[in-house]
């Protein structure tokens, strides 16, 4: 009996010290995280809470730090503002057109890049070049190509003239033309990164699967749909999710082509609207900006969650 007790005490001791060690380690982990947490707290969490507060304060004035009251007023205003509705429409059109199209194009280009043998690196570099070029510089080039001025119709219209159509004013003309340029430009800008990700994803699929499939007489199309696609699907989902988020947050691309007065061009985006509400010519309304920003957050959050749910369902592993 006493022996048993003895062993009990002995075994209890190391257990206790192990617990202590565990606690110490957990403490250390938090200690290491502390600097990052402090920064996140000051520059992320606090402002976020602030934005939330502003969005419910009616007529908040940042200079005097005063407001009339609290409620849903700002949301109601923003949701009835035609500029905001236009911005939402523009953003959704850009998202819905550019995300699938750019991903599909990137996939096709990566497949082509993956199948060529000679000068592969050269082509890969060429496709990656836009990524290292500044957005505003690319935007300027696009504007010059598409713009119609009293002196010249621009490069694109000259090409259109060959096919006996046009000229179309892509920058100051009809809505569809502007939207076309915008989507074209957005796809162009996001393409290189997607190509880069997908070429490496394709290259990482083990050659042996294709060999096995070939011996079994698998057609090239079936190899693509039944082997390649499932194997690179995590990367595709990654691109789609980040693509959605990126496209919803688009703003600088629009400025690069249509200038800072996006509302009058009818090409504003949600982020552009937020910016205008804060600093634009019609600006000085942080409450409206906050409400618009939170609406954007809700949209992006919902879509990302949906995306993740879908990707989880179809995920291979």
């Amino acid at each position: 009996m006493s022996m048993q007790q003895d062993t009990k005490i002995q075994s209890a001791k190391p257990k206790n010290s192990a617990k202590l060690l565990k606690r110490l380690n957990a403490f250390k982990a938090w200690l290491y995280l502390l600097p990052a947490l402090v920064f996140l707290g000051i520059f992320m969490v606090y402002p976020l809470i602030d934005v939330l507060v502003y969005s419910f304060e009616e007529g908040y004035n940042s200079a005097s730090q005063t407001s009339f009251g609290t409620g849903w007023f700002n949301y109601a205003y923003v949701l009835h503002d035609p500029y905001f509705l236009q911005a939402v429409k523009n953003t959704f059109i850009i998202v819905i057109i550019t995300v699938p199209l750019s991903t599909l194009l990137a996939l096709l280009i990566s497949l082509a890049l993956n199948s060529i043998k000679k000068l592969k690196e050269v082509f890969q570099t060429i496709f990656f070049l836009p990524y290292v070029t500044n957005t505003l510089a690319v935007g300027l080039v696009f504007m010059i190509m598409f713009k119609k001025t009293p002196y010249t119709d621009g490069l694109i219209n000259m090409i259109l003239a060959i096919f006996k159509t046009g000229p179309v004013d892509f920058i100051d003309g009809p809505y569809w033309a502007k939207m076309f340029v915008m989507c074209f430009y957005t796809i162009w800008v996001v393409l290189p990164f997607k190509v880069l990700i997908l070429t490496s994803a394709l290259a990482s699929v083990d050659e042996v699967y294709y060999k096995a499939a070939k011996i079994d007489g698998t057609s090239r199309f079936r190899m693509f749909t039944h082997i390649t696609l499932p194997m690179i699907s995590p990367m595709i989902f990654y691109l789609v999710i980040t693509g959605f988020i990126g496209a919803f947050k688009a703003y600088s691309d629009e400025v690069a082509i249509f200038g800072t007065n996006l509302n009058s061009a009818g090409m504003n985006t949600i982020v552009g609207y937020v910016y205008d509400m804060l600093y634009g010519d019609s600006g000085g309304y942080p409450s409206y900006a906050a409400a618009a920003a939170l609406i954007l957050f809700a949209i992006v959050f919902t879509i990302t969650v949906v995306n993740l749910l879908i990707s989880k369902k179809t995920s291979i592993r």
Binding site: I215, D216, T218, H226, I227, I316
Partner: peptide, 29 residues
């Protein structure tokens, strides 16, 4: 061509398709 020779091959790394179940792997050919 390989697909017309009527050979079956087992690779060193097995080359089983990781996203398919055993049944689907076997049915693949």
């Amino acid at each position: 061509p390989a697909e017309n020779r009527g050979v079956g091959m087992v690779f060193q790394s097995y080359a089983l398709y990781p996203h398919l179940t055993v049944k689907k792997n076997i049915m693949f050919p």
